[in-house]
């Protein structure tokens, strides 16, 4: 599994981590992604995290919950998380399933996600 192409790439841009999910992840891969990302938040002293899920064709209850968990952990570690790129069909199915993203910030795409983080920083309201 580790020899194949990366399932997720995590790039650093200033103090923001941009994580792009490239393909459908199963539950254990999702948990591994969560652990990698949380570790890198500390390593790179990130203040913002953007998770791009545009490549996911399904976000089921487990995936939603994992994304929310990542955001919760990141907040406790001092970083703000924005989920970007949820496809319209996926959003529809999530609502029908009864899943939302809770308190986690979302944005249409990467650009909007960056703008959202920049907005937070500008107003100085980054940390409570």
């Amino acid at each position: 599994m580790n020899s194949g192409p990366a399932l997720v790439s995590i790039l650093r841009q200033g103090d923001t981590l941009v994580a792009s999910v490239h393909t459908a992840l199963d539950d254990s891969e999702m948990v591994r992604f969560q652990n990698d990302l949380v570790r890198q938040i500390g390593e790179y002293r990130a203040r913002g995290v953007i998770i791009d899920v545009a490549a996911l064709d399904v976000i089921d209850s487990f995936a939603s919950r994992t994304l929310q968990t990542i955001a919760d952990i990141a907040r406790l570690r001092g970083a703000v998380t924005v989920i970007v790129g949820i496809q319209p069909e996926v959003a529809f199915a999530m609502v029908r399933l009864g899943m939302g993203m809770g308190e986690v910030a979302t944005a249409l795409d990467l650009e909007e996600g960056m703008a959202h983080l920049a907005g937070l920083r500008g107003s100085g309201a980054r940390r409570e």
Binding site: D27, D57, V58, I59, D60, S61, F62, Q87, P88, E89, V90, F92, A93, M94, R96, L97
Partner: peptide
């Protein structure tokens, strides 16, 4: 098509997870 496919795939994902 479209949303129906995604809803179906999501439901299959949930019931398959229950088995695991």
């Amino acid at each position: 098509t479209g949303t129906d496919l995604t809803m179906l795939a999501t439901a299959v994902s949930e019931v398959a997870r229950n088995i695991v």
